[in-house]
């Protein structure tokens, strides 16, 4: 009897998601971005493309780690051949390094503007353009209204947007689908060799719409993400819940 109740509840949850605009996951979409167990935290178990993700970083080291993480995601999103726009306040991304994360650096168009308003204006225009694979914008602050505008732009075109917030201030609420925090971690030596190992990050999901929060440790290993430890935070949130 309890089994049938659980079925009913899960069916209802799926219905609610559908009413909220989430498409049920097509079979081949699983594991779309190669994030493994992280994708299970999202509704329907699919990494939501066609939405705006928000990534917070507090210093330049974290900004670099976040850049690496996004580039890793882009390598999958850009597989269909689409181009990508990277809008920043300062020109710092070094194109040759992008190749190590599996994308063609010449398919990334960099925009170097001075003001937050310009970044957001360009980002909104770009998110309306369905030919793009992804749009990344670096801003200092983002309020709810601005994020809502971006979200509305994305709903038509199904382009994936990433907002990088380079600010140590506590972020307020936004309309983004997820909020991430990427921190660099000490790398592990490869097979006992001296020197640096593969880039390793702590990936935290601080907010997910209709999903579960979590924290994972991942590495960028020869062109793909590999999970080191699996979701320690889910247990905690379940305990509190």
């Amino acid at each position: 009897m309890s089994q049938s109740k659980r079925d009913i509840i899960s069916q209802l949850q799926k219905d609610i998601l559908q009413w909220e605009g989430y498409q049920p996951a097509p079979a081949h979409k699983h594991g779309l971005v190669g994030l493994g167990p992280v994708e299970a935290a999202f509704p329907n178990g699919v990494f939501p493309v066609g939405t705006v993700h928000e990534l917070v970083c507090e210093n330049s080291g974290q900004a670099a780690a976040t850049g690496g993480f996004i580039t890793g995601l882009l390598s999958v999103l850009m597989q269909q051949g689409g181009a990508c726009l990277w809008i920043g306040l300062s020109q710092m991304l070094f194109a040759p390094a992008l190749k190590n994360f599996g994308i063609e650096p010449d398919k990334v168009i960099f925009l170097n503007v001075l003001r937050d308003q310009d970044v957001l204006w360009i980002m909104e225009e770009a998110l309306k353009c369905p030919g793009l694979a992804a749009v990344i914008g670096e801003v200092q602050t983002l309020d709810f209204k601005q994020s809502r505008r971006l979200q509305l732009a994305v709903e038509q075109s199904r382009v994936t947007g990433f907002i990088l917030r380079n600010s140590s201030k506590k972020p307020g609420s936004t309309a983004c689908a997820a909020r991430w925090h990427i921190k660099p971690l000490p790398s592990e030596a490869i097979a006992g060799l001296p020197g640096l190992g593969f880039p390793r990050w702590q990936i935290e999901l601080l907010k997910v719409r209709n999903g579960q929060l979590g924290s994972w440790i991942m590495e960028w290993d020869e062109g793909q993400f590999s999970v080191i430890t699996d979701n320690p935070m889910v247990e905690r949130s379940q305990r509190y819940g």
């Binding site: 181009a83 360009i122 770009a126 030919g131």
Partner: peptide, 26 residues
């Protein structure tokens, strides 16, 4: 990809707004 007409039009609009020299591809 880059041959997309919509992308070229988008970049035109951006260039008109912020200036052509701010758009870079390497």
């Amino acid at each position: 990809g880059l041959a997309d007409n919509a992308l070229a039009e988008l970049l035109d609009r951006i260039a008109t707004k912020v200036g052509q020299d701010r758009i870079r591809r390497y």
